[in-house]
């Protein structure tokens, strides 16, 4: 595809590949814990960080990391309490985060030409060299945590009570997972946007576990699917001039739908063949 001869397309593709690789690697732990949508909430909170960055003239990515990390730690504290009112606390955090973000971005509009939708739904085509460097460094951190600490993160997400009894540093691991979630959200912000990042954390994992039997195999396949959907999505967006972030997510969802119907058809065919007695 000659469209990738343009440097801006190459940067967009690289950013999307980093996102596609790390989002499922982190997301699998959230899915395992049945907190698949928590990434969406952290994305809401991160927007306040973006607003703060734009308003104070600092790099929005860095302020977003800090605010999202603080929000993720707050979410983790709410989860640890396990109170019935936890839902309400999360709603306050998430909607406070997104409205605070919209408010601050609007305040800063006189000073910058920043576009709110670029942060909410991604703008990979405007990825700069320095942007890419930040994404690569933060993405490397996310990969290091999610791959190297897999046995321990698996243990706390699989059965937290058991991990406590076994003497694992459960609280520290939980906080690390929360902060890593925040970093992943921020890295993905440029490629797919804060409102779509959660999809790339969850959909590839859901797709992978249609065919996998174990945790490790699910993780690797989900990462491959994430990379594939990102590459394909950015490619399609480049050729047909569609919204890149949304295209990536639609490709991921289409992969899930195709695999699910394909498997369903194969299983149905096998059942009929067995029933026919051949």
């Amino acid at each position: 595809m000659e469209i990738f001869e343009y440097a801006f397309m190459q940067r967009a593709l690289l950013g999307a590949l980093i996102t596609g690789l790390i989002a499922p690697a982190l997301g699998i732990y959230l899915v395992q814990r049945r907190m698949a949508l928590i990434g969406d909430g952290i994305g809401h909170i991160a927007l306040t960080g973006v607003g703060l960055g734009l308003l104070t003239g600092s790099a929005p990515v860095l302020t977003a990391v800090v605010v999202a990390a603080a929000g993720a730690v707050a979410v983790e504290l709410v989860r640890q309490r396990g109170r019935a009112s936890g839902d309400i606390a999360l709603a306050l955090l998430f909607y406070g985060g997104i409205s605070g973000g919209v408010f601050l971005v609007a305040l800063s509009s006189g000073r910058t030409n920043a576009n709110l939708t670029a942060y909410l739904f991604g703008s990979p085509l405007t990825t700069t060299g320095p942007d890419l460097a930040v994404m690569a460094v933060l993405g490397g951190l996310v990969l290091a945590v999610t791959l190297l600490l897999r046995p321990w993160l698996f243990a706390i997400c699989h059965d937290e009570e058991y991990a406590h009894v076994a003497g694992l540093p459960v609280r520290a691991l939980n906080l690390l997972l929360a902060v890593t979630t925040a970093v992943t959200v921020t890295v993905a912000m440029r490629a797919v946007g804060l409102l779509l990042v959660s999809a790339l954390m969850v959909v590839p994992v859901a797709t992978a576990q249609l065919v996998t039997r174990g945790f490790r195999s699910t993780m690797y396949l989900a990462m491959a699917i994430g990379v594939l959907a990102s590459a394909l999505g950015v490619g399609i967006a480049g050729v047909y001039d569609t919204a890149p972030g949304a295209t990536v997510i639609l490709v991921a969802i289409a992969t899930f739908a195709l695999l699910a119907t394909g498997l369903g058809a194969v299983r149905g065919w096998r059942r009929r063949r067995t029933a026919a007695g051949t």
Partner: peptide, 14 residues
């Protein structure tokens, strides 16, 4: 768990 895990993976966590 929301994600499949093999017998070996669960026992290894112990």
């Amino acid at each position: 768990s929301g994600v499949p895990a093999t017998v070996g993976e669960v026992v290894a966590a112990g």
